[in-house]
Design a binder for these strands. Structure first.
Lengths: 195, 195
DNA sequence: TCGAGTCGATTGACGAGTCAATCGGGCGCC
DNA sequence: GGCGCCCGATTGACTCGTCAATCGACTCGA
C-alpha cells in the first residue's frame, strides 16, 4: 500500500497545486505537472480525464475539508458572534497552512471561467454563513434589519478579499497581520465603523 | 470625423465587451469580436496589439471613469458615512447601467491571470476607500480601532461579491434588490450586526 | 499619386490529449 | 520454492485541431 495507486494520484494533485500556484492554470502545461510530480506525462491522464479535471479535483477536495470544518463550528454551537469568529479564523488561517493552495483557489477558482464557480459547493459555504447570521438574529444578538443572505455574501467577499490581498502581496501577511485581520473582520461585522 | 478612426476603435471595443460578456475572454475568438463589430478581422490588430490588449483597454477605460467618479465624491466632501454611501451607490448602480461591462470586469479582470490585477489601478480604488475611512476616523465618526486599509479591502471585497452575486445570478437584481444592497452594505459597515 | 484605413486568407506555433509499447509484481500451477 | 502468465500501472513520442497573429492586397479620399 505504501506504493499503491492512490499515492501517485496524490503526488500528481500536490504537484499540480504547486505548479498552478507558480504558473497559473492557463500557463501551466500538463507536462509541468508530470515533471513536478516526477511521473510520466500520460499518467496524469490515467488518473484525471483532463487538465481541468485536475484543477477541479484540487478545488473539490479542499473545499470539502473547509465545509466540514465550518459545519464543525456550527455543530459545536455557541453564540453567533463566536461562531462567526471561528469561521473567519478557519478561513484566514488557511493562508498560513498552505499558501500555494489558497493562491490557486483564490486566483483560479473563485471567479474563474474554468470551473465556472462550482455553484453548488460555493453555495453551501454561503448557506453556512447565512445560517449563522440567521441564528444570531433568532437569538436576538443580531439585528433583523439586514438580509442574512446579503450579509453572508458580503462576509464571504470580505474574507476572500483579505486572502486575495495576501496572495497579491498587497497586504502584510505575518502572524500579527493574520491575527489583526481576524480581529478586524469580526469587529467590523459585529459593531460596524461608527463609534 | 463621423467615420473617423476613433469610431471604429470604439466599435471594436464595445463589441468586445459584448463578446467577452457572452463567451468569456478565453472562449472568445478574435473573429467573434470583428464579426460582432462588423469589421474585418485584421482591423482589430490595426487598433490593438493583441487580444489581451483589447481586454486591457476595456478595463483601463472603464476603471478610469469609475476612479473619476469616486474622486468626485471625495471632492464634494461631506460626512464620511455619506461619502461611503455615495461610492457604494456608484459601484452597485453600474450593474444596472451596463451589465455586460460589469460581467466582464468581474469575471475576467478582478482576479484574472490575464491582466494580473492591474495592480496600480486597483490600488488606487483601495486608496480612495482608505482615505474616506481615514477621514471618518479623523472627524471622529469612525472608530480608530480598525485599520483603515483593512476596512477598505473588506469593503471592496463586499462590493465585488455583491456584483458577482448578480453576475452569477445567485442574487435577485431588480431595482429593489439594488437599493437594498446599497442600504445593507452601508448599514453593515456603519453599525454592524449587533443590535 | 500617395498613404491611411481596411480587408481576410494563410500560417505557424502550440499544447492537450492519444495510444501502443513496456514494466513489474502478484498469483496460481507445477 | 520457483516459473511464467496476466493485467493494471506507467511511459513518452506523436497527432491533430485550434486560434492568435501576420501580411500583402485593395479602396478611396485628398
Amino acid at each position: 500500500m505504501a506504493g499503491g495507486p492512490e499515492d501517485k494520484r496524490r503526488l500528481i494533485l500536490d504537484a499540480a497545486v504547486r505548479v498552478f500556484a507558480r504558473e497559473g492554470y492557463h500557463d501551466a502545461r500538463v507536462g509541468d505537472i508530470s515533471k513536478e510530480a516526477g511521473v510520466a506525462y500520460g499518467l496524469v491522464y490515467h488518473y484525471f480525464t483532463s487538465k481541468e479535471a485536475v484543477l477541479e479535483a484540487v478545488f473539490r477536495e479542499t473545499w470539502g475539508l473547509m465545509l466540514t470544518a465550518i459545519r464543525g463550528v456550527e455543530e459545536r454551537g455557541g453564540p453567533a458572534p463566536d461562531q462567526l469568529r471561528r469561521v473567519c479564523a478557519i478561513v484566514l488561517r488557511s493562508w498560513r497552512d498552505d499558501p500555494d493552495l489558497v493562491r490557486v483557489l483564490v486566483r483560479e477558482v473563485a471567479r474563474s471561467p474554468q470551473i465556472q464557480r462550482e455553484i453548488d459547493e460555493i453555495e453551501q459555504a454561503f448557506a453556512a454563513l447565512e445560517r449563522i447570521v440567521e441564528r444570531g438574529q433568532e437569538e436576538g444578538t443580531f439585528t433583523r434589519d439586514l438580509s442574512a443572505r446579503m450579509v453572508a455574501l458580503m462576509l464571504y467577499g470580505a474574507l476572500e478579499e483579505i486572502l486575495t490581498g495576501w496572495v497579491m502581496s498587497q497586504l502584510p501577511d505575518d502572524d500579527d497581520a493574520v491575527a489583526e485581520a481576524e480581529r478586524t473582520i469580526v469587529a467590523l461585522f459585529a459593531q460596524g465603523l461608527c463609534r
